[in-house]
Design a protein around this nucleic acid. Structure first.
Lengths: 248, 248
DNA sequence: GGACCACCTTTCACTGAATGAAAGCCCCGG
DNA sequence: CCGGGGCTTTCATTCAGTGAAAGGTGGTCC
């Protein structure tokens, strides 16, 4: 056959972009084709067009990478660099005061995406990456975003198995439900060694006109931390940003 | 007719993404179709697929915006957030020392793209935007990037009319050629009121294994500035980053 | 040197995914 | 109630896209 019941061209293009990840930012054509589930000649043609436009770039090593043009377009995402640009001064203030890691994240489906991070040089190292994803049920920002997510999102997260990262990760849906209620009640979230045994994070919501749109957090070494003392700082930063976004 | 000699589907998808810009980050379907030069039903179908994947998002107002997913993918561009993450601590150091605007840019074709900016709160306001483009012949970073660009790029820029931004913008190709030679000789570039009459910028190259890959600059009020005093600071930052990238 | 291998690029005959005109919705304002 | 602007679906048609296969290209090993 010559043109089997295949997928749409658009889905193939998007599958090619999907093939890239933080772990593998540079791929050969064959790897790309395999990851996207496309025959080699098909991948070849689509990739050639993407390179011509600038969505992909071909390095001197012959491997393909995400192109600057795609970064440019992506930077127009209101919830990406847009939010980032607005929040950066506030994050910097918070960093100046605490000299700890500051993080900004939004919810995307059943996960969170880190929009910005200021990595304190003397602070506890964090594993996350700007542009990276993470589960909603363990981190401080995740708990805030989940606690204020639409009910159907909460139910979906609670229904699925909750991955365990440390012995303190809350994996029981009933306990998590109580935690989320606490987060809503006190107005901030504390994740104490629920992601790694080194670190603790304190997070507060950022509200837009339609509700919570993002969360901000401090990540500190768990033995140096006093969550109750940090919470007001994080909450204050959250409120400044909420006001800037027209939230409550 | 039903399927005229049209363009490739891929080019249509990319045209839709291209329709967005910093000036118009939210578009209705009709606007999108018009900007991309597509019939409405065609735009409708492609956009629906892009939304399903997350490349676009549809707001409560019915307008389409660039989606977070595209931002995520774009953040994998080695010359985008990749370079940014590496450079940020150095830019912050430079900001700490000077409390002036710090900018990081790379060349993309015959223009430059701003990768990062630390906007000093008490510094002269700059018009540029992270993710934004600008001509190569006027700014400090532009002069550095142009001076170290391949000869064919330089010739193309010099052959085209050079836009004038202020009365001090160099628009004569012969003079610009001399400026570029100076930049290469002294190892930094000064753009004195060539973009706006308020500001002056001092820029230095960042070298990777294959030559200059980016440029870093300070933008200061022209009446407060002493370019010769600032140059060593900017150059030092450039050298730190060059070393980190395996450049000279 | 030449046989092999891995990867990339082009060709070719074929066909179903994509097409745009047209008609149907839906909501708002007069 | 009608008109208009924007969005969505239908439908007959066809060309852009297809994948198998063959043709480079460059490197490694014997």
């Amino acid at each position: 056959m010559r043109a089997q019941p295949g997928r749409s061209v658009t889905s193939k293009v998007l599958a090619l972009l999907d093939a890239f990840s933080a772990a593998s930012p540079a791929l050969t054509l064959s790897e790309l084709a395999r990851r996207a589930g496309l025959p080699l000649p098909t991948a070849y043609r689509r990739v050639a067009e993407l390179v011509a436009w600038g969505a992909l770039e071909r390095g001197d090593d012959g491997r393909y990478r995400i192109g600057l043009r795609l970064w440019e377009v992506g930077s127009l995402a209101p919830r990406g660099l847009g939010l980032r640009e607005l929040a950066l001064p506030v994050l910097e203030d918070l960093y100046e005061v605490t000299h700890e890691n500051v993080q900004l994240a939004v919810r995307q489906g059943l996960e969170l995406v880190f929009i910005e991070r200021i990595a304190g040089r003397h602070a506890v190292p964090v594993l996350t990456r700007v542009g990276g994803r993470f589960a909603l049920h363990a981190t401080g920002v995740g708990l805030v975003l989940l606690a204020h997510a639409p009910p159907e999102v909460q139910e979906q997260v609670l229904a699925a198995p909750l991955e365990r990262y440390t012995e303190l990760t809350v994996t029981d849906p009933r306990r998590l439900r109580h935690c989320l209620a606490d987060v809503r009640r006190v107005g901030y979230a504390v994740s104490d060694r629920q992601v790694t045994m080194d670190a603790l994070s304190v997070a507060a919501p950022i509200r837009g006109p339609e509700g919570v749109v993002a969360a901000i957090s401090l990540v500190v070494a768990h033995d140096r931390a006093n969550p109750v003392a940090l919470a007001p700082l994080v909450q204050a930063a959250g409120r400044v940003l909420s006001r800037a976004l027209g939230g409550s």
